[in-house]
C-alpha cells in the first residue's frame, strides 16, 4: 500500500509568532520544523504500510525557500521519499491554493491513501485536507481517532460531537487524523543518518504543471485584541480551597 502524507513545515511554536506588518503574512524566518500535528499522520501511515506488508510512505509538503528540515524529521521516522513544492509566488497562499498545490504534488506518484492532520498548528483552517480530497475526486474521512485498512477498505472511527461514528470507505481515499490516533515514534540515530540520503524532489509551480494560482482573499488589518486583566494569584498554604469558596460566594455561584 502506498500512502501520501501531507506534512506541513512550520516555525518553531516555542518562539512567539508574528505577522509581517506590511504583507500580513506569517513571518517565517528561521528554521522550520515538522508540525507536531502531522507527526501522527506520518506514524499512522508507517504502521499501515507495515501491516499491509508492502508499499511506501511519500511525504508531500509546500513550504518556502526549499525548506526540508521538517521533511528530514519525517524521513528519519521512516518515510521513503518526499515531494516539496517551493515557489516565491506561493507566499501568503490561502487554504484552497494550498490544497490545489498539494493535490497536484500528490498525483505525481501512485497512491492508495492520502493522510493529513485534522488541522495544522499554525494555520488551523482545518479545511485543507478535505479540499485536497475534492480536487483529487476521492472520498474523505476527517477527525479520525482510529484508522485501519482491511481488504482494501478504509475503516475509521470518526469523532463526532456526541461520540464517534464507524465509517467505511473503499480506497483510494483521504483520511485526516487527530492527535490521539497513535503515539509517534522518535527518529532513531540510524533513521536520522538514513534520512540524509533519501530522495526529496523539489518543484516550483511551473514544474508541478498547474495553471496560475490566484488567492481569493486578503487581510485588511491586524489589531491587538483587548487584554483580559489578570486577577489575583495566591500560593496555596493549605487555604487555597477557602479562597476559591470565597470567590464562588462573591459571584453567587454557591
Amino acid at each position: 500500500m502506498n500512502i501520501a502524507v501531507c506534512v506541513k513545515q512550520i516555525p518553531d511554536q516555542s518562539v512567539p509568532g508574528k505577522l509581517d506588518p506590511v504583507t500580513h503574512n506569517l513571518v517565517r524566518d528561521g528554521k522550520l520544523i515538522l508540525d507536531d500535528s502531522d507527526s501522527y499522520g506520518v506514524e499512522m501511515a508507517l504502521q499501515l504500510v507495515d501491516r499491509a506488508g508492502g508499499g511506501e510512505v511519500t511525504l508531500i509538503s509546500m513550504a518556502p525557500n526549499g525548506e526540508v528540515s521538517g521533511l528530514r524529521t519525517a524521513l528519519a521516522m521512516g518515510a521513503a521519499k518526499a515531494v516539496l513544492v517551493s515557489d516565491p509566488s506561493l507566499a501568503g497562499s490561502d487554504a484552497l491554493t494550498t490544497a490545489k498545490v498539494l493535490a497536484a504534488a500528490i498525483s505525481r506518484n501512485p497512491f492508495d491513501l492520502v493522510m493529513a492532520a485534522t488541522e495544522s498548528t499554525d494555520g488551523y483552517t482545518g479545511t485543507v485536507p478535505v479540499q485536497v480530497a475534492e480536487i483529487l475526486d476521492i472520498p474523505s474521512v476527517s477527525f479520525a481517532k482510529k484508522v485501519d485498512v482491511e481488504n482494501g477498505v478504509l475503516k475509521v472511527q470518526r469523532q463526532t460531537e456526541s461520540g464517534y461514528d464507524e465509517v467505511e470507505c473503499p480506497l483510494p481515499a483521504l483520511v485526516s487524523v487527530t492527535a490521539g490516533v497513535v503515539e509517534p515514534r522518535y527518529p532513531s540515530f540510524k533513521g536520522i543518518m538514513a534520512a540524509k540520503s533519501k530522495p526529496v524532489e523539489i518543484l516550483d509551480v511551473a514544474g508541478l504543471g498547474i495553471g496560475p494560482l490566484t488567492v481569493g482573499q486578503e487581510i485588511v488589518s491586524v489589531r491587538q485584541a483587548e487584554e483580559r486583566a489578570s486577577g489575583t494569584v495566591v500560593v496555596d498554604e493549605g487555604d487555597g480551597f477557602q479562597k476559591i469558596v470565597e470567590f464562588l460566594e462573591s459571584i453567587k455561584v454557591i
Binding site: D94, L96, T127, V130, S142, T160, E161
Partner: peptide
C-alpha cells in the same frame, strides 16, 4: 459552523466551486 460537519461541508463546497474560505 466550525464543527467537524461544518468544516467538511465548507471544504467540499470550496474546492467544488473554486471559492476561497475564511475560517475561525
Amino acid at each position: 459552523g466550525s464543527t467537524p460537519e461544518g468544516r467538511d461541508a465548507a471544504a467540499r463546497l470550496s474546492a467544488k466551486m473554486d471559492l476561497p474560505v475564511l475560517t475561525n
